[in-house]
């Protein structure tokens, strides 16, 4: 998902994305979403470019980026697991299951494993509340998680 990039590349990709989207009414989120899609996170070096092109202060841009849970400030692991921690999933035992996954992977919420293979993030509702517990693994939805599925998932994302 994430790619290594140097300052020049970040600057030029960011500029291209801004160029493409700047004419929208309220272009900030579309731009940030596109940047995160491209790099897997929102690089610090993108912020001055955005500030410059959108006529904002760097602090304002930083304020927006840090407000939203989706935006990462550093690259995620090769795999990203987002587990729903909201009420419907709680009622079906997601707390125990996520503890299990985190301990199998040896990480905490929001952390990336030492080998860079996997990041586990919390999310609050994926709209799969009638077939809870639910998660999103590399953009793909999974439902009715149980012990066996968690074990298989831990294996899959460690490879």
């Amino acid at each position: 998902m994430s790619v290594e990039a140097n300052v020049e590349e970040i600057t030029s990709v960011t500029s291209e994305i801004i160029q493409e989207l700047q004419s929208l009414e309220g272009p900030m989120l579309p731009i940030l979403n596109e940047i995160q899609d491209h790099f897997g996170f929102v690089p610090q070096d993108s912020l001055p470019v955005i500030a410059d092109k959108l006529n904002l202060s760097k602090a304002e841009v930083h304020g927006v980026v840090s407000f939203y849970h989706d935006y990462r400030s550093e690259p995620a692991g090769d795999h990203v697991v987002k587990i729903c921690r909201a009420e419907a999933c709680q009622s079906m035992g997601v707390n125990e299951l996520s503890e299990k996954l985190l301990s199998l992977l040896g990480i905490g919420w929001g952390e990336t494993s030492d080998n860079g293979k996997v990041t586990v993030e919390a999310t609050y509702c994926l709209g799969l509340c009638a077939c809870a517990p639910a998660a999103m693994v590399d953009g793909k939805l999974v439902a009715r998680l149980d012990d066996a599925k968690i074990e298989a998932l831990a294996k899959e994302v460690s490879q």
């Binding site: 009414e25 309220g26 272009p27 900030m28 989120l29 579309p30 940030l32 979403n33 959108l54 927006v64 407000f67 939203y68 849970h69 989706d70 935006y71 999310t123 609050y124």
Partner: peptide, 21 residues
Amino acid sequence: RIGAGAYVCGEETSLLESLEG
């Protein structure tokens, strides 16, 4: 338009702020 993971942005005025960037 796609949001960026903030529950409060469902509140209508927060949503409008977000839509404005």
